[in-house]
Amino acid sequence: MDEVLVECAHMSCAYNSTLAIKNIDLTVRKGDFIGIVGPSGSGKTTLLKAILGSISPVEGHVTKKPQLRMGYVPQVETVDWNFPVTVLEVVVMTRSSTGHLPRVTKDERTDALLVLERLGLGGLENRHIRELSGGQQQRVFVARALFHQPELLVLDEPTSGVDVRTRHEVLHLLADLHDEGVSIILSTHDLNGLAAHLPRLVCLNSEIIADGSPVEVLTPEVLEQTFGAPMGVLIHGGMPVVVDGVGADIAKRMSRLD
């Protein structure tokens, strides 16, 4: 059995006495690649923040492997792209507790350039963050998270608001990192573009509805319970493809007109 990195036991979290997530039992092991799926307001970000330790459970507890190194990639929509920082400055930020002075040391620069090169961002270290494409911007924040060599990478909606090409880039990058031994947990509401490609999914709507492989959890029953709307599921090339219930209904009616 692989080493346990994070274990949530009967965990509930609340904002202003309103429960955001309740009775969560979730174990993240070394080598896991987990997607948390659910509608807006289902508690995906809250669950990630509880794992990161930025909010405390009101019930139950989160246990982490001692000295667990975690890297966090927030939603890119929350980033102030006008902020006066270069790519290199963003990447070395995570060494705030050890590096104090404005000057980037030679070792830090070498390490940062290696991470940037590995993520296909070589030569962009002196660019302002606004001057990058959507995929490059996302990778800069992954680079920042990877800079202190995390054992667990936590990503909040990594493909939210990005185009199809960027989504593919992000998905391939995460798959490569996972192959290199980084454990990953991410939240997404992108069922077909991202979630269906992951080895393990957790369907969340305040509480865990289902936990398993995409084929096991992406079923009409689980999806209706999770998203509160009817959804169909087709199997294409051995992978589940989720079809919006309304869309499927309209398609059926259109085909009758033909």
Binding site: M70, Y72, T94, S97
Partner: peptide, 21 residues
């Protein structure tokens, strides 16, 4: 000057800064 990085990180991205220590 002494806390430059922490000031920069907490100004740019307070949530991730908190998580990063």
């Amino acid at each position: 000057v002494a806390l430059y990085r922490a000031f920069l990180f907490a100004t740019f991205d307070p949530e991730v800064a908190q998580v990063s220590g």
